[in-house]
């Protein structure tokens, strides 16, 4: 059994996603009820966008140890505290209009298989739900999605030389589209399929 932990935030968790976690036997804990040591022991960590990052900064050793041991961290949200060495802090996109926030795919990844970038970019014609800027990646990271207009790398995956991988998404939780009636609803179940399979490293296919 893979040790997967969903790290709950303080608000706005999607009930459907929590139900999906329970159905797969994935543990879900509040950031208030977890220790750095427990983070270190996780093989896979799913972190909500609304999490108390200041609390996580106090447990940075645990996050780093999780990765160093070969673990996977899926981080959602605008990174405003230096939780991960070599990763920059959030930079808002250069524009905030509809056309500034359209998304394009750079590399295919199983989590986003069959997901149309149009459905990620727009909900009822409104842009910006998915991401409005980037957490700057290290040079070795591979970009999965970026904003067409200014190239902000909004989703990327980084195989660390020290071990472990970080799947970064710089917007609202990538599973927030779970209940949408579009292809974007595929993200959440495909993410859970991927982590339950041990988050295998895949050869990315450039688009």
């Amino acid at each position: 059994m893979i040790n997967i932990l969903h790290l709950r935030a303080v608000s706005h968790e999607l009930p459907g996603f929590v139900k999906s976690l329970h159905a797969r036997g994935i543990r879900s804990e509040s950031v208030r009820d977890i220790s750095s040591k427990e983070l270190a022991q996780c093989e896979i960590l799913l972190i909500e966008a609304h999490v108390d990052q200041k609390a996580l900064l106090g447990m940075k050793d645990g996050l780093t140890a999780c990765l160093d041991a070969g673990g996977t961290i899926v981080f959602n949200g605008q990174l405003v505290y230096p939780l991960f060495d070599s990763v920059g802090l959030f930079q808002v996109a250069s524009g905030r209009g509809r056309d500034d926030l359209i998304i394009e795919r750079v590399n295919e990844h199983p989590v986003f298989d069959g997901v149309d970038c149009y459905d990620m970019s727009l909900r009822r014609g409104v842009a910006g739900f998915y991401a409005r800027g980037a957490n700057p990646p290290p040079p070795e990271a591979e970009i999965l999605h970026r904003l067409v207009k200014d190239g902000s790398p909004i989703d990327w995956i980084w195989q660390r030389r020290q071990g472990g991988q970080l799947l970064m998404h710089s917007g609202n939780t990538m599973w927030m589209y779970l209940d949408d009636k579009t292809s974007a609803a595929r993200i959440a179940p495909q993410l859970l399929d991927w982590v339950c399979a041990g988050a295998p490293v895949t050869d990315l296919e450039n688009c």
Binding site: V10, V51, D52, Q53, K54, G77, L79, V80, Y81
Partner: peptide, 10 residues
């Protein structure tokens, strides 16, 4: 009063 979230920080 800051809850440690990105939106409080911003």
């Amino acid at each position: 009063v800051d809850g440690g979230t990105y939106y409080h920080h911003a």
